[in-house]
């Protein structure tokens, strides 16, 4: 197994259908990321593939199922499953979402929105604390794609996330496609969001494609290439943060490997530009 550390380079969301090609050709990709929930079976081909990938590439675990924003207590069984995977695959990064997805034992398979209030802030911080204690390591928390807001919200999302990071010691995962999707759906500029975002806390950047509904609504569908305005946001953020791990997600209508790989090459080009600009 090579070193766990995620490099400040571009990586890709790992799709099982690409594994054979990746293992045969060992392409230049900085690192891979998976959803741990898809590797929580006892055995079988998913684990065989992931173990083979992990021998050659650093890995990040990007959870979708812990329901960190849930009103109930953190799911101890799910946390234990996650810990088992962390011990087995030694990921360089572990991340989760600012969202809830379970209520009273029912799992909704969606990243559901939270009101940004002092009450939810305290709850999320408590859950992040428990998660970090359970894993014995810090995590990154990702900003959501939003379609609506809550009347009761009193805090802006960047400030809310910054406060979670300050109180819990977690880092942040800045998803620039989510910023763009939310900005269009809720009517703000992505630049204003980034201006107020606690960029010092960012440990990873996500990019992905979004779908545009006939009525103009943007859906965070991860079903196509990264959109031009999202690439522009990456260039903007990298100017301020310097190079960071940058990951491209493509989860629906997954393309052939060369098409996905091209997204990583594009992201790497922006990272290289950033490095040169800073060195020069």
């Amino acid at each position: 197994m090579i070193a766990a550390t995620i490099p400040r380079a571009s990586g890709l969301g790992l799709k099982s259908r690409h594994c054979a090609e990746i293992l045969a050709s060992r392409p230049r990709v900085g690192w891979f990321e998976v959803h741990p929930e898809n590797y929580m079976g006892a055995g079988g081909p998913p684990h065989r593939r992931l173990a083979a990938i992990r021998r050659d590439y650093p890995l990040s675990l990007h959870g979708v199922g812990l329901s960190i924003g849930g009103e109930g207590p953190l799911d101890a069984a799910h946390l234990a499953r996650l810990r088992t995977l962390v011990e087995r695959y030694e990921p360089g990064l572990v991340s989760e979402h600012l969202a809830w997805s379970s209520h009273e034992g029912v799992y909704f398979n969606d990243l559901l929105p939270l009101p940004y209030t002092d009450g939810t802030l305290a709850r999320v911080v408590e859950h992040v604390d428990r998660l970090q204690e359970g894993l014995g390591r810090p995590i990154l928390l990702e900003n959501p794609s939003s379609y609506l807001t809550f009347e009761e919200s009193t805090l802006a999302e960047p400030a809310f996330l910054g406060e979670i990071a300050r109180r819990s010691g977690c880092g942040l995962l800045l998803d620039l496609n989510n910023v763009f999707v939310s900005s269009q759906n809720l009517g703000f500029t992505p630049e204003s969001y980034i201006d107020s975002f606690p960029l010092d806390e960012v440990g990873e950047i996500h990019l992905g494609g979004h779908a545009t509904e006939p009525d103009g609504l943007l859906v965070d569908a991860h079903d196509r290439a990264v959109a031009d305005p999202v690439w522009a946001l990456l260039a903007l953020v990298l100017q301020r943060t310097g190079v960071l791990p940058v990951l491209v997600e493509w989860d629906n209508d997954v393309p052939a490997w060369p098409v996905l790989h091209r997204e990583a090459v594009l992201a790497q080009r922006l990272l290289d530009n950033c490095r040169h600009a800073r060195a020069g």
């Binding site: 929930e37 898809n38 990007h62 969606d110 859906v219 965070d220």
Partner: peptide, 13 residues
């Protein structure tokens, strides 16, 4: 390769 349900963090169109 596409065996059974999997989670993603994506929404759906």
């Amino acid at each position: 390769c596409a065996a059974g349900p999997g989670t993603t963090c994506a929404g759906t169109s």
